[in-house]
Simulated scan of single mutants.
Amino acid sequence: MEDVKLGVVETKFADIIWRQEPLSSGELVTICREELSWKKSTTYTVLKKLCDKGIFQNQEGRITSLISRQDFYAARSTKFVEDTFDGSLPAFIAAFTSRKSLSREEIAEIRDMIDSSGGADHRLGNRK
């Protein structure tokens, strides 16, 4: 995926699709009218833009994603860390925690993520 950015409105729109997919273009128009107060033409214009970016596809009036919400935001997060912290996740965490303390639950959740990624096991295995 190229460096695709979404504005605030595009993000709300994308979240609607990710939450509801697969859905028909008619269903999408109805949801956008109710949730975003959009006209049909606005919905189709933004949909085409995000299809052109390779995030969604509209095949015969059926809207589906080409990239999951999780994968999209994982790629965006990786790009942010690369651009802002020279790719250093520890530098990002240091900057983040200098302004906001982590709760015990957040710390435990992060430790679990590290442990499940194999990072801790891999490092321990190399200490032989």
Rank of each mutant, 00 (worst) to 15 (best):
E2A: 05
V4P: 00
E10D: 02
T11K: 13
T11N: 09
F13R: 08
D15R: 13
W18Y: 12
R19G: 03
R19F: 08
Q20A: 11
P22I: 03
S24D: 01
S25L: 04
E27A: 12
T30C: 02
R33Q: 11
E34K: 13
S37P: 01
K40C: 00
T42M: 12
T42H: 05
T42E: 09
C51S: 14
K53H: 03
F56W: 01
F56P: 02
N58W: 01
N58Q: 05
Q59D: 14
E60P: 00
R62N: 12
T64H: 08
S68V: 08
Q70V: 13
D71R: 10
A74E: 14
S77V: 11
T78Q: 13
T78A: 12
K79F: 11
K79I: 12
F80I: 09
D86P: 00
S88R: 05
L89T: 07
F92K: 10
F92S: 07
F92R: 10
T97N: 06
T97L: 10
T97Y: 06
T97R: 13
S101L: 03
S101V: 00
L102V: 10
L102S: 08
L102A: 13
L102N: 08
S103C: 03
R104E: 10
I107W: 04
I107G: 00
A108F: 00
A108E: 06
A108L: 06
M113C: 09
M113I: 09
I114L: 15
D115A: 05
S116F: 09
S116K: 14
S117W: 08
D121F: 07
D121A: 15
H122W: 04
G125F: 00
N126Y: 04
N126C: 08
